[in-house]
């Protein structure tokens, strides 16, 4: 499954990472190299093997559905690059 430049651009966009044209060619080469090596997993017979979706076999703990935290507006906004009137500020989304 060779990755072409078009796929690299699509992946970069999905990942929200801006890439320059020289970077596209570089990524295509590098990612193909890594994915080619990953292809060896195809040798393993995984018929009827359930995918591993949990690491330690324990029941998820439950807790009462009550509010235990909150009223932290200043803390939450403290690290934001731009804020106004208690909100995060982002570039205009809707015209």
């Amino acid at each position: 499954m060779a990755l072409d430049d078009k796929t690299v651009r699509k992946i970069a966009h999905l990942a929200r990472i801006e890439v320059t044209e020289p970077e596209v060619a570089h990524y295509a080469k590098e990612l193909n190299h890594i994915l080619g090596w990953i292809e060896q997993l195809g040798e393993v017979n995984t018929k009827d093997v359930a995918p591993m979706t949990r690491v330690v076999d324990v029941k998820l703990p439950r807790r009462p559905d009550i509010v235990t935290d909150g009223d932290k507006q200043a803390d939450i906004l403290a690290n934001a690059p731009a804020t106004a009137a208690g909100y995060f500020v982002v570039p205009k989304v809707v015209e």
Partner: peptide, 30 residues
Amino acid sequence: VKRRIMIGTYVLSAGYYDAYYRKAQQVRAL
């Protein structure tokens, strides 16, 4: 970091999830 985000995005993207991600989870089980 970019390289790994790109690989991760690719193996989770539509059409490749089963071939890569699900396969890896199965090998992980083994």
